[in-house]
């Protein structure tokens, strides 16, 4: 009896330790990011590293928002498209770019993708589904070469429009893929009853299927937004100086030689903060979408 209890105790301790081992790498990196962003430059470049700083301050965050030269100092990066250069108030302008691109690409994807998901689920258009699947797994970079040339010919490079259009490569397949799964899971009876009563297919979609699919739309919206927000390589290639999205803007700080860690960590934290908050608040929806959708975009 005693031996049995001891073994169970050891089993529990072992389990607790393995959970801790699983979670700690994630914890370590995010806590270190937070720590770097709250310490001053002296503490950040000290060796051995400072784990318990004597003083914490929000100065790095203030710098990110206030110092005009923080993100726009990289003047050696010449302007490829010959447009007039103008300085944004630090990260604020890039925040605007990211918001326009991610919200725009997500909104358009919902507009096009939700009806498409419905249509594919109902008409069992497997070829279309397979096409969307392939689009989701192809490297994002492969779309950039032709799209980049196309935007150049159309004279659109240098504005936010080409970036927004390119982000549709990420968001449309996510929305369609998630919505196919949701519409397939919905019961058909209500719709069929409406159709028998003389409703058009559009009315059945608008008033019956769409309200029922609201949870699916939430999942699709969150995932499309996050993967668009996180996207980096489209911005690297397509964005001019003033059309960079946040990830590109923060990356450009790193390529700059004398970089200070505190403000960089603060900027990195701010860029990923919306996504982390969404993950915290909408964990259930995100998990449902990822296990159904399976593949990340881009």
């Amino acid at each position: 009896m005693r031996a049995h209890q001891i073994r169970r105790l050891f089993g529990r301790i072992g389990f607790a330790l393995s959970v801790f081992a699983l979670v700690s790498p994630a914890l370590l990196v995010f806590l270190w990011m937070l720590s770097l962003s709250l310490k001053n430059e002296l503490d950040n470049t000290a060796y051995p590293p400072v784990f318990w700083p004597s003083k914490l301050s929000l100065q790095n965050f203030v710098d990110v928002f206030e110092k005009n030269d923080f993100v726009t100092l990289d003047w050696t990066d010449f302007d490829l498209f010959g447009r007039t250069w103008f300085a944004y108030p630090a990260l604020g302008g890039y925040l605007y770019n990211s918001v326009v691109v991610s919200f725009g690409a997500t909104g358009l994807a919902l507009l096009f993708g939700v009806p498409a998901g419905f249509g594919i689920a109902k008409s069992k258009a497997h070829n279309m589904a397979a096409l969307i699947m392939i689009a989701r797994v192809t490297p994002g970079l492969s779309y950039l070469v032709p799209l980049f040339l196309m935007f150049q010919w159309l004279g659109m490079v240098g504005s936010l429009t080409p970036l927004l259009i390119t982000h549709l490569v990420i968001t449309v397949p996510i929305v369609v893929w998630v919505m196919i799964g949701f519409f397939e899971g919905l019961p058909n009876e209500l719709e069929e009853a409406a159709l028998v009563d003389g409703a058009t297919i559009w009315q059945a979609f608008r008033h019956i299927a769409l309200p029922l699919a609201r949870p699916g739309i939430v999942v699709a919206t969150i995932l499309a937004f996050i993967f668009s927000w996180n996207n980096f390589i489209f911005g690297v290639v397509l964005a001019g100086r003033e059309t960079r999205t946040l990830p590109v803007a923060v990356y450009n700080v790193l390529t700059f030689e004398e970089v200070s860690w505190g403000p960089l960590a603060a900027a990195a934290l701010l860029v990923t903060l919306p996504v982390l908050l969404l993950t915290l608040l909408m964990q259930k929806e995100i998990v449902a979408g990822l296990t159904a959708g399976g593949v990340k975009g881009g």
Partner: peptide
């Protein structure tokens, strides 16, 4: 579980920057 899935959701550039600072050979 939320903490565990954070690395997958976080902006890749942001976490890559933090890793870069953590990998610094001297500091």
């Amino acid at each position: 579980r939320t903490i565990f899935i954070m690395p997958m959701m976080a902006t890749p550039v942001a976490i890559a920057l933090v890793w870069t600072m953590m990998f610094h050979p001297q500091l």
